[in-house]
């Protein structure tokens, strides 16, 4: 039962990563791309970590995976913020979305 749940979470997480990557490739400017990437990858990361924690052999390892999730999530959110901040200050054109 747990194994099935773990596999399902892993697959769902991978799906979120794929969605984020498609957003990165398809969206017009840096802010839209960051929007897609940070949100989708944040969810994907949470699901993959949850799946890995379910599969962990003992509580200590699950705790370490939880800590990894917390700090990678913090780092990626901060990284996304720094990229957006730099992009806004450097002022690349926000591309008009074609109707």
């Amino acid at each position: 039962m747990l194994e099935i749940a773990g596999t399902a979470f892993m697959a769902l997480g991978a799906l979120f990563f794929v969605a984020g990557t498609i957003g990165l490739l398809r969206f017009p400017d840096v802010f839209c791309r960051l929007h897609a990437l940070t949100k989708a990858d944040g969810m994907g990361l949470a699901l993959v970590c949850l799946s890995a924690a379910i599969g962990a052999p003992d509580g200590g390892e699950a705790l370490r995976i939880l800590l990894i999730w917390v700090f990678v999530a913090l780092a990626s959110a901060t990284g996304g913020h720094l990229v957006a901040r730099h992009a806004r200050r450097a002022g690349p054109p926000v591309r008009e979305v074609r109707p």
Partner: peptide, 16 residues
Amino acid sequence: ALGTVYQGFARVALPV
């Protein structure tokens, strides 16, 4: 200028 978000992140993450 890395901003307050980065400062907060550094305060939590660097000691860890």
